[in-house]
């Protein structure tokens, strides 16, 4: 067991090294994203701030608290981009027969799919996320005790797994439909609209869906609302921070099972 884990981490490190080398080979490409992604997120937050300042608050959230929420949302988005963005492109892997290579190697296919291709461009999303988050912390005087720091980390891990799991589940649909199903843009839009704003502004039926059926509410809204002590709607649970981690693990395990079942339908590419 220990031996296997050692082997797996060694393989991942080797791939991480390759990812870094690839980025260094094309610095201009990285520079382009380094400019475009921060502009997108920082401007996005600036517009929210202008509006909320005009009105005072939205569903009991001031703009400092919204910055905190937005920060958690963008940071977890960035982490999910680094580790799980392949889920968005699974359709291309299915159609072009790229799983052949993974199936031939003596390692778990899911592990190879997730952890042998690191998308370092995701780091360019991390920077604006951290900026807005720090701004939010300063606005609301967030106290950085050990407990609070752990809460933030637990939330981010859980949130990243929820996002990654959902990308995998959506991507797995390609095995069944045998088409590319590139849902990346829609997934991103849906996540943006449900994790950057408090979901308590939506009708209750939609809040229910976001809590139980498509658990995006746990990515940022419930844990942040609990940490900052803001009313969080009808479907909230106590201990939302730990629930985020639990939901993250459940979603990811479910995604792994769905992926495994779907992989059985894989037929490789042929003519």
């Amino acid at each position: 067991m220990l031996q296997t884990m050692k082997h797996y981490s060694k393989v991942s490190l080797a791939h991480l090294r390759i990812a870094v080398l690839t980025v260094m080979e094309y610095p201009a490409n990285m520079l382009g994203w380094l400019l475009s992604n921060p502009i997108q997120f920082i401007l996005g937050f600036a517009t929210i701030k202008f509006v909320v300042e005009e009105f005072g608050s939205v569903c009991g959230w001031g703009y400092g608290q919204l910055a905190f929420l937005y920060g958690i949302s963008v940071i977890s988005h960035a982490l999910s981009m680094i580790f799980f963005v392949q889920g968005w492109f699974m359709g291309y892997y299915v159609i072009e027969g790229d799983f052949d290579r993974y199936l031939l190697r003596p390692m778990s296919v899911l592990y190879q799919f997730c952890f042998t291709k690191f998308n370092l461009v995701g780091i360019t999303d991390l920077i604006p996320g951290i900026c807005v988050f720090v701004y939010g912390c300063l606005q609301i005087d967030y106290v950085w005790t050990l407990k609070n720091t752990i809460y933030i980390l637990v939330t981010l891990v859980g949130a990243t797994f929820i996002r990654g799991g959902i990308y995998l589940i959506i991507g797995s649909s390609s095995f069944w439909t045998k088409s590319i199903n590139d849902f990346g843009g829609y997934t991103q839009e849906l996540f943006d609209k449900t994790t950057m704003y408090p979901i308590s502004m939506y009708p209750e039926s939609f809040q229910f869906v976001l809590t139980y059926l498509l658990p995006i509410g746990w990515v940022s809204f419930y844990p942040t609302a609990e940490l900052l002590g803001i009313p969080n709607g009808r479907f909230a649970w106590d201990g939302a921070v730990w629930m985020t981690l639990v939901v993250g693990i459940i979603v990811f395990v479910a995604a792994a099972i769905i992926f495994k079942c779907s992989l059985k339908r894989y037929e490789s590419a042929g003519n």
Partner: peptide, 23 residues
């Protein structure tokens, strides 16, 4: 230019945010 994609993204977001499309 060699890779235009990031710039196209910047333009898209600038227009969406600064043209009154959303706010």
């Amino acid at each position: 230019a060699i890779n235009m994609n990031p710039m196209v993204q910047v333009k898209k977001h600038l227009i969406r945010l600064l043209s009154g499309c959303i706010i």
